[in-house]
Amino acid sequence: MADFELHCRETQIILGDRFEAVHLWLDEFFLSPQYGTRHRRLRHHQAGIYEAARLFGPEAARAARIHILTDLRMEGWNEGYPFPQDEAHFVALGLW
Rank of each mutant, 00 (worst) to 15 (best):
D3K: 09
F83P: 00
C8N: 07
T70P: 00
F90V: 04
A63R: 11
F56I: 02
L24Y: 06
W25L: 05
G80F: 06
L26M: 14
R43L: 07
F83L: 04
P84A: 09
I66V: 12
T37Q: 14
V91W: 10
M74A: 13
G94L: 07
L15G: 05
F29R: 14
E87A: 03
G48D: 09
V22P: 13
I49Q: 06
L26R: 10
F4P: 08
L31V: 12
G94V: 06
I66F: 04
A92E: 14
E5D: 14
L24K: 11
F30S: 13
L72K: 04
E51I: 01
D17E: 14
D71F: 01
H39Y: 12
G16L: 11
A2G: 08
D3H: 01
F29Y: 15
L55H: 06
H45N: 01
I66D: 02
H44A: 02
F90E: 01
M1C: 08
D27L: 04
Y81P: 03
A60L: 05
D27Q: 09
G16F: 12
L93F: 04
L26P: 08
F29T: 15
D86S: 00
Q46G: 00
C8P: 06
R41K: 12
G36D: 08
F90K: 04
H23T: 01
P82R: 15
H45C: 00
I14D: 07
Q46F: 02
H45A: 03
A53Q: 15
A92P: 03
R73F: 03
F56W: 11
L15A: 05
A53E: 15
M74S: 14
R38Y: 07
V22W: 12
W25K: 04
P82D: 14
V91E: 13
W96V: 09
Y81F: 12
P58I: 15
E59F: 14
D86M: 00
Q85A: 03
H44P: 00
A53Y: 05
H67I: 01
G80E: 12
L69K: 12
H89P: 00
H44F: 02
L93G: 01
R73T: 05
Y35A: 11
R54F: 06
R54D: 10
F83W: 09
M1A: 10
A2S: 08
A52E: 01
F83G: 02
L95S: 06
D86A: 00
R41H: 05
R54Q: 12
R62K: 15
P82N: 15
D3Q: 07
D86K: 00
R9T: 03
Q85R: 06
A64R: 03
D71H: 05
R43I: 02
R18P: 03
T11M: 10
I68H: 04
L31F: 15
R38H: 10
L69Y: 08
D86P: 00
R9M: 08
R9K: 08
W96L: 11
E51V: 05
L6G: 10
R9C: 05
A47F: 02
I14W: 10
A2Y: 11
I13R: 15
A92L: 09
Y35L: 11
R18A: 12
G94D: 07
M1K: 14
R18H: 05
R18V: 04
G16C: 06
